[in-house]
Design a binder for these strands. Sequence first.
DNA 1: AGGTCGGCCTGGCAGC
DNA 2: TGCTGCCAGGCCGACC
Length: 307
Amino acid sequence: MPELPEVETIRRQLEPDLNGRVVEVAEVLDDYFTKPEPAGSFERAVNGREIIDVGRRGKYLLFEFDDKTTMVIHLRMTGSIVLLAPDGSENPGDARIHEAGQGERHLKARFTLDDGGELRFTDPRRFGRGFVANPEDLNSYFESRLGVEPLSEDFTVDALASMTAGRTGPLKSFLLDQKGVVGVGNIYADEALFRAGLHPLSPGASMKPENHVALRDGVVEALERGLDLGGASIDDYRDARGEQGGMQNEFLVHRREGEECVNCGSEIQRIVVGGRSTYFCPSCQKRLRRRPKRRRVEGGVRAGRHH
DNA sequence: AGGTCGGCCTGGCAGC
DNA sequence: TGCTGCCAGGCCGACC
């Protein structure tokens, strides 16, 4: 499942090769890809445009054009984006891309570039979507859906504290909600909560100040580890060159039901939270039940004054 | 308004 | 072997 580290890995690979390229022919092979917009208007909006930047917002991949419009692609569950080398050039990755099922199979859209290369979107499950928007529409689209970027300096402990204040729902559900922190999906939510020592069912508002710090750090560290390893390939995920990531080999809890906790040796458990499989260590991640009470820090009650 | 749940999709796999 | 049915989950819309 492409989450922030997977999408960012793809973005970093595409950016140097796509900047300055012109889309000569855009072809949508499955109307689902542009739903609810018609494929024809999408193709017309992309045809002839020069790509001047490749960006990312949350799990959305952004191809910025010379006319300031942006092609937005979301991979959802099983989508993948690959870049095929120009015709005639020797690129060992192309064979790998076909082997990984990112060739003609499940091909939903194809963009022929002015250097002969080809950008491909494939998606066996047909959940992925693409659209083109002007800056104002894109801004309001993201404004209503997305919160803070976890790898930006805006993701402070204070910001996290105010987002979770008053929330009675489980922390796991909070992390999956893109209106709070963006880019975290089912994998990195489990990994972040384990790193923070927080139970996935603990209510958002049950956290104490030290928990806010731990969760902020847990989210950042889980995502950065995923980025370092080029993402997690559980089944479908491949990067823009058809290669797997390495994060799946270093999961601390995710998909490790019945295995030993790397920290204490307890058995990792699986529960369902908000309809999603959730993995945690029952010993390292204790459930918080009470809302925090402000602890008085009055001077006189320090230990050692009497014996 | 926050929380919860079902629907969208299809490949893969358990079970018979 | 071949069939059925269920599961995976990001996001959205409906509902409470």
